[in-house]
Amino acid sequence: MKAMVVRAPGGLDRLELRELADPGQPGPGQIRVAVHATSLNFHDLLVANGSIPADDGRVLMSDAAGVVEAVGADVTEFQVGDSVVSCFFPQWLDGLPFHDVGHFRRTPGDGVDGFATEVAVRPATDFTKAPRGWSHAEAATLTTAGLTAWRALVVDGGLKAGSTVLVLGTGGVSIAALQIAKAMGARVILTSSSDEKLARARALGADEVINYRSEPAWGQRVLELTGGVGVDHVVEIGGPGTLAQSIQAVRVGGHIALIGVLTGRQGEVPTSVLMAKQARLQGLIVGSRRDQQDYVAALEQGDIRPVIDRSFPLEQLAQAFRFQESAGHFGKLVVEW
């Protein structure tokens, strides 16, 4: 079977399409999945370019969507022919995060082989069912980006109709957050440096948009748009370079979901302002299997479909990553085979 791997010490010029041995039939508690699609996330890029060290020959990609080809003994949740999606933390089945999910030793495409491969044999609990009627490309966007947005707003944020949400950017997590928030009756303010992307966000339902290049004090602008009160929730993907503005933009007692570090891994935090706002700043990484199942159930009750910017074939994974680095995409980038 074909698989895309990265040769140590990493780098997009060190991705290689290899022929690997077929994993065979599933054992007890396992399923065999024909993988048909994956989607690109910042974490995948960091593994591929060597920023996150990985074993030589590591099969890349955390997200997977495909079809069950065979089930092992004692598997009752899945049947042959079911469409499934992978879990980012396969060991985190339910409840609060715990010590074992504080690292990535069992995360596909990082600590263990990922899903840039034609076939995978894994424990059945490494997957959930995909939303009914979704394509593999659409379903592949759920594992990391979609679930992160769902947890930020719904699981941890307790989003309610009538709330106001600030979304930073127009990548996969941000667009999913926009769609979830609008589906639940929230008002959404969205930022980007591209007027074209802001127009597309408006077409998806964003109520207010801010170009942060032309309005660098966008935290103050958010306050103006909310009558000086601030937003109930912030989907914060930038990290240290944007966090001060997000803290300014949040209301007293509001919630900031820190889910990205696109502007760096460390920096100054205006702790006195955060304290005065009595806001909740919570870091999060994806979610549990139960969270994913709840998200899929919610998606099946509505009409949300992920926004896919473009698709690449498996052999062009390096080109897909380079396009991701350019930040020219709106929504998700996927790879299909």
Rank of each mutant, 00 (worst) to 15 (best):
G331N: 06
S246Y: 04
V307H: 05
G287N: 11
L281N: 06
G29H: 11
G267F: 05
E208S: 00
M275P: 01
G283E: 11
D100M: 15
V155N: 08
A152R: 03
V273H: 12
R202S: 13
L262N: 11
G95A: 07
A206W: 05
E336M: 05
A320E: 04
L20P: 03
T226G: 04
L190E: 04
G241D: 10
G81L: 08
K160P: 02
H43A: 12
V6R: 04
C87I: 14
D56P: 01
I31G: 04
L96H: 12
S272E: 15
L46S: 09
W134H: 07
T144A: 15
S163H: 13
K129H: 15
L225P: 01
G27W: 06
F42Y: 13
S326I: 08
P28R: 13
V229E: 08
R251D: 01
L317K: 06
W92R: 13
R122P: 08
Q324N: 09
L314M: 15
D291V: 07
H329N: 11
A186G: 01
Q248V: 15
V85Y: 12
E138K: 03
Q282Y: 08
D94S: 13
L96K: 10
G10N: 05
A217K: 14
Q292I: 10
S83W: 09
W92F: 12
A145F: 13
S272L: 14
V273Y: 01
E315K: 14
V119D: 07
R105I: 11
G205S: 03
